[in-house]
């Protein structure tokens, strides 16, 4: 355990050095590849944070796009109108997403399974509709002119933070309490775990990082539109964590990268098959089905949802 602790910080410092070095080389890289690298990082943040809610705590949330939207819009609002420094705006976006997570979590986390999924899905849609009608951030016209602050450095700094914080959480007594809720809520309660508090905590944790990811995304694209945050976005993230293995942090991170690169690689399929119709998404879907058939526990093997007796 002691070794592991130390290893975690070495990993962190080592990571920082690499990020710094790569950051110097990167501008010379093909901008298309650069963009994929940025999106892969943002997707890691989204997937690893949703994994805390769905994979570790076992609460089925479909509201990640909503939290992401809150962070994206709020941080852009701050940098655009008030010239707030980028890191502060990112954190503010995350905090507001976290607060909304708290507001939504308190009433909805009493619900279980499918009901919670529907409730969080509804929450995400409500956020999107509000943004559609919020004139100060452009409403249905979209929000242009966001300063381009997102760099490789910021994205992967956040990736490091989200990885280290989730991993620390997982290995802490609190993390074990969160896992026990996933395993058996009644038994967990009988052990003296305040299950509501931990569920809300996991929810806020996930919402916060989703908000930060949204901020990174906004300041890379420089343009926001509410239609980017439909529930399909949440499903996209969900696919990443299921494919990576619910609950496995490394699996989920790898699968986030994999699923960012895969659709891009599949652009060559059109050339390969020499067709006019683009078979990209067909192959993509087939690959997803195949992976789920061959490895239902996910790439790196998370936990298996057990069949409930009742």
């Amino acid at each position: 355990m002691e070794n592991l602790e130390r290893f975690r910080y070495i990993f962190f410092i080592f990571g920082l050095v690499i990020i710094y070095l790569v950051n110097i080389i990167l501008p010379y890289i093909n901008p298309y590849y650069f963009q994929i690298i940025i999106f892969a990082g943002i997707n890691i943040v989204l997937a690893v944070s949703l994994n805390v809610i769905n994979g570790l705590c076992g609460q089925f949330s479909l509201g990640h796009a909503g939290f992401m939207a809150v962070g994206a819009y709020f941080s852009s609002f701050l940098t655009f109108y008030y010239k707030v420094p980028f890191p502060l705006a990112l954190i503010a976006g995350g905090v507001l997403a976290g607060l909304i997570g708290l507001g939504v979590g308190v009433p909805t986390l009493r619900l279980r399974g499918d009901y919670l999924a529907i409730a969080t899905l509804g929450m995400g849609e409500i956020i999107r509709v509000i943004l559609f009608n919020l004139d100060i951030v452009g409403g249905a016209r979209g929000f242009p002119g966001i300063p381009k602050y997102t760099s490789f450095f910021w994205v992967y700094l956040v990736v490091m933070f989200v990885l280290v914080s989730s991993y620390s959480l997982l290995k802490s007594p609190q993390g074990r309490a969160i896992l026990s809720i996933r395993e058996d809520e009644i038994a967990s309660e009988a052990m003296g775990v305040n299950t509501t508090r931990f569920k809300i905590f996991a929810f806020i944790f996930g919402a916060f990082w989703a908000g930060v990811a949204g901020g990174l995304w906004a300041h890379y694209l420089q343009f926001l539109h509410p239609s980017s945050f439909t529930f399909m976005k949440s499903v996209e993230v969900l696919v990443m964590i299921v494919l990576g293995g619910l609950g496995s942090i490394s699996g989920v991170a790898i699968s986030a990268v994999f699923l960012t690169i895969l659709p891009e690689l599949l652009r060559y399929a059109k050339v390969l098959f020499n067709t006019t119709v683009d078979p990209r998404m067909v192959i993509y879907s087939l690959l997803l089905i195949l992976t789920m058939l061959l490895r239902p526990q996910g790439l790196l093997g998370g936990y298996r949802r057990k069949v409930k007796e009742q």
Binding site: R176, A177, L179, S180, E183, D184, A187, A190, G192
Partner: peptide, 26 residues
């Protein structure tokens, strides 16, 4: 006042040791 619930309800994906540590959670 600690309950041993019916049907055991151990935390299946946690190790035996982790289960025991959960018992000492408080």
């Amino acid at each position: 006042i600690l309950q041993v619930p019916e049907g055991r309800r151990v935390f299946g994906n946690l190790t035996v040791m982790e289960n025991l540590l959960m018992g000492a959670y408080l």
